[in-house]
Amino acid sequence: MTIVLVVGFLLQSSWPLLQQQGIAFVAGTEWYPFESLYGMLPALIGTLWAVALALLIALPCGVAAAILSAELLSPRLRSTVRFGMELLAGIPSVVYGLLGIWLLIPLLESQFELLTGRTLLAAGLLLALMILPTIMVFSEDAISAVKQSQREAAKNLGIGWDATLWRVLLPQAWPGIRIATLLSMGRAMGETVAVMLVVGSIDRIPEPFYNLLQPAQTLTSRIGREMAEASVGSLHWAALLFCGLILAILAMAISLLTHRQRLVV
C-alpha cells in the first residue's frame, strides 16, 4: 500500500509541474513572441553570470583550501577546519542574504563608487561564499582518499611536493572535485533568497555584456519577487512558471551529469 502511495505521490509531484509548465510554455511563447524572448534573456544571462562568477571564485579557493587542509596542516588543525566548514555549509541562505544586503553592498558601493551596490557582482560573491564550504569539504575528501602508497611511490622516485600534487594527487582527486563543482553549480543556480536581496532585480542585459557592476536579474530572483504580485492564471503567471521550468530543466541536466559521473566513476 505504501508502495502505491509512494509511486503515486512521486508521479503526481513530477507531472503537475511539467504539465503546468507545459501549458504556460505554449502560452508564453505565443502571446509574448517578442517580449517573452526579451523577458527570459536578461534573467537567464543573469543566472549564468552569477553562477559562473561564483564558481570562478569558489573553485580555486575551495580546492586550495582543501589541498592546504589535506596536505599541509597538522591533523588537529585539519579537523578544526573541517568542522568549521561543515558548520558553515549549514547556514541558511537568508542569513547570507542579510550579510549581502548590510555588509557586502555598502562595501561594494564604497569600493567601486556605485550608485547602488545591488549588482551581479554582489550576487556572484555571495554565491561564491555559499558554495565554498561544499567545494572544500568534497575536495578534501577526494584528496585524502588518495592512498598513502601513491604518495610514497612518488617520493621514492624523488618527485618533489609540487609535482606530486599536480601529477599524482589532483588527477586522482579530480572525479570527486568534479562532482563537487556540479553540485555547487546546482545550488548556486537555485539559490533564491540571498540573490533576491542583492541582485537589483532589474530586467536588463548588462551592457557591455561583461559589466558586472550593474543591477541585473536572475531567474530565481524574478520568481521570488513577482510570485506575490502576479495574478494566478494570467500571462505574467505563465511567464513565471516558464522561468521555473527553465530552472527545473537546468537542474535536472546538471543532476544527470553528476549522476552519470557517479555511474562511470
Binding site: 610514497e152 617520493k155 621514492n156 622516485l157 624523488g158 618527485i159
Partner: peptide
C-alpha cells in the same frame, strides 16, 4: 632528500602503479 632519492631508488613490497 628528494635529490637523494633519485640516486637511491626504492622498490616497495607491494607494487604501486600510477593511474596512467
Amino acid at each position: 632528500w628528494d635529490q637523494l632519492r633519485r640516486h637511491v631508488g626504492l622498490i616497495a613490497q607491494k607494487p604501486v602503479v600510477f593511474n596512467t
